[in-house]
Simulated assay, not measured.
Amino acid sequence: MSAGADIAARTAWAEARGEGIAGMQAVLNVIANRAARPGWWGHDIASVCQAPHQFSCWLPGDPNGPEARAVTDDDPLFRSALSMAGRAASGDLPDLTRGSDSYYATTSTRPLWAAGRVPQIIIGHHAFFRVGLTGDGK
């Protein structure tokens, strides 16, 4: 497995393990959608995942960061994330998000970037949006 796919699996697991397989797949879809359209958010899977302030699990002080770095394939959900990340990296993971490139947890405050936008879909407690893929050059 590539380093990028491993980072994507850790990102999806940390961001959405509480949402189960579909939630982790949706996060991987966002990562793949961003990597397919390089820009300010990164140019490949690894840089998309670790771009500053994009995925909370990689923010300094976020409690999911150390857990994401330490999780092993002994965790069944992480094994699933690894498998799906490999499929995402090869372009073979169905997109549940309808082409979304952004999301936020509906259990938190709606971020400013989501103001006035309608989600493409809501999966579990995450709302998914097309923000930078709308032809505005982002």
Rank of each mutant, 00 (worst) to 15 (best):
A14W: 03
S102L: 15
E15H: 13
I31V: 09
G124S: 04
Y104D: 05
W58Q: 03
L28E: 04
M84S: 07
V30R: 02
G124Y: 00
A51V: 02
R117L: 15
L93Q: 00
Q50H: 11
I7Q: 00
T109G: 08
T106S: 11
A105V: 11
Y104R: 03
I31E: 03
G91V: 10
R69K: 12
A12T: 04
R34F: 06
A5E: 06
N64H: 11
D101A: 07
S47G: 05
R17Y: 07
A115H: 14
R34N: 15
S90F: 03
A8Y: 03
V131L: 13
V71Q: 12
A8R: 02
I123H: 06
V118E: 15
S47K: 12
T72C: 15
V71T: 11
I21D: 09
R117V: 09
N33Q: 07
L133A: 13
I121K: 15
M84F: 11
P52I: 01
H53T: 10
E15S: 10
I45T: 07
V30Q: 00
S102W: 15
H126G: 14
P66R: 09
H126M: 15
W13Y: 14
F55G: 02
T134V: 15
G65Y: 01
M84G: 05
R110M: 08
G116D: 07
I121V: 14
I123Q: 08
G39I: 03
I122F: 07
A32Q: 08
G116Y: 08
H126T: 10
A88K: 10
A85V: 09
G23T: 04
L77R: 13
S80G: 03
A5V: 03
W13F: 14
R98Q: 11
E67C: 09
R110C: 05
H126F: 13
D92G: 14
S2A: 05
G39N: 04
G91F: 09
C57S: 09
A32L: 08
F78S: 08
T109S: 12
L28N: 00
E67T: 10
V48L: 01
R87P: 04
V118N: 13
F55C: 00
A5I: 02
G116C: 13
W41G: 02
M1D: 10
D6I: 10
